[in-house]
Design a protein around this nucleic acid. Structure first.
Lengths: 232, 232
DNA sequence: ATAACGCTTCGGCCGCGGCCGAAGCATTCC
DNA sequence: GGAATGCTTCGGCCGCGGCCGAAGCGTTAT
């Protein structure tokens, strides 16, 4: 009654995310890549025609965006804001009363290192944030972030230039609450650039059908040499 | 399939918010106050027994918390994270394709000034963030925030001491995306303290049955004198 | 051309979950 | 004590929405 305007649409958006199949679709898209309708059907565990209906609803509400390509249709999250909302929901979900948590091997991999929309999360994400903080390359004062001049120079030395191509007006240094570690990691343009560069340099590799990423042997050495990171 | 663990619970949490009655309940609690079950029933537009069921579900998932008091039961949001998730969803909702937006007078008041969980939002919230930024009391570099020393001293002059009682480890300066202005305003302990103090000084007053707040004549003068704020 | 593929639309089934009336516990008031 | 109030539990109704099979449409492959 009070705030009918926001209330109604809030429920609509949440209801869209609040279906298991659609939540799986969105989760699958959380790594920032675009996937085809059939891939998403597989991820969500429903038939293609059912998935198609879900995809139509999600695009209708502008939660995801579609691009035709040949006889495929590629779907991706419509905006970083959507990713942020989903991440916030996951954070809340992690507070929820724990039912039997069958921490499988796949879940372990997720907790170690994974992509979160377009940046890195998990223990690796936290470690990167900590390393950059310790060296004063970023200042995460009270969980909010600023990139320092030294930080900017340092990033240049590993081949990251944040000035090149402004990518709209997206914030350089954002933080994002990590649902497994419950601490903020680096997001924003900085987080995205770090993640992209880590893939380019072969430090990390995607694990098939998962948001988890594997740290390559070379990556392990480089992360140690560059950031002093040593993951258990 | 891929991330079943997070997927399932993500859907559960979203589904809880994705019901009109429950969304109304949560919206009503977004101003940070605790309300009784019957007040929430009224806000959500359903019968008391139906509301009771919703409240049970919401508490069961730790989205809200309950405190008995006499024959009343007071409900409030369980944590700032919940508020943050809801705010993020509202931000996404505001991107959604606009159906007829009957911008009523109540909606106008909401857009001018309202509480968002425990801090101020709307044009007033944005104006405060801008004023503090312009005077270098906070640095919202790239939408992330830091409180400067001068800022800390300035706040003391208007009776806000952020050191008193640490309130756990809650961040001093957080930002929160404003769904009506689509720009970040001040949240965190700073945002909460500013809001509380504004009520104490009689600058603003709650509008009955709404998250909107009214700026008193005295408040108008003080906001002008203290921050140089002049709202249309 | 014909077939294979990718995706969507249509139609009908079915079950989950929201809804309220009635009843059951508390607590407070007189 | 009894009555009123605040809230919850129970039971049954009902409709929305997710699901799949079948069919349709457009693109690519051979």
């Amino acid at each position: 009654m009070a705030s009918m305007v926001s209330g109604i649409t809030l429920a609509e958006i949440a209801a869209l995310i609040g279906d298991v199949a659609r939540a799986n679709i969105l989760s699958a898209l959380m790594d920032g890549r675009a996937l085809t309708a059939s891939e998403l059907a597989w991820h969500s565990g429903v038939s293609p025609q059912t998935a198609s209906g879900h995809l139509a609803k999600l695009s209708g509400a502008r939660l995801i965006a579609m691009a035709r390509q040949g006889r495929h249709r590629y779907y991706r999250l419509a905006s970083p804001e959507v990713a942020q909302a989903i991440e916030a929901l996951m954070a809340v979900a992690s507070f929820a009363p724990k039912r039997h948590r069958p921490v499988g091997p796949r879940d372990k991999a997720l907790r170690k290192a994974r992509t979160c929309y377009d940046h890195l999360a998990g223990r690796l994400g936290i470690a990167l944030a900590d390393a950059l903080t310790a060296r004063r390359h970023v200042i995460l004062s009270e969980s909010a972030g600023v990139l320092t001049d030294e930080g900017h120079r340092f990033l240049c030395t590993i081949g990251i230039d944040l000035d090149a191509g402004q990518e709209g007006k997206r914030a350089i240094c954002r933080t994002c609450l990590d649902w497994s570690e419950r601490r903020p990691h680096l997001a924003g343009r900085l987080g995205a650039a770090l993640c992209r560069r880590a893939f380019e340099l072969g430090w990390i590799e995607r694990i098939r059908d998962s948001r988890a990423v594997a740290i390559t042997p070379g990556g392990q050495r480089s992360l140690q040499a560059t950031f002093g990171i040593e993951l258990a």
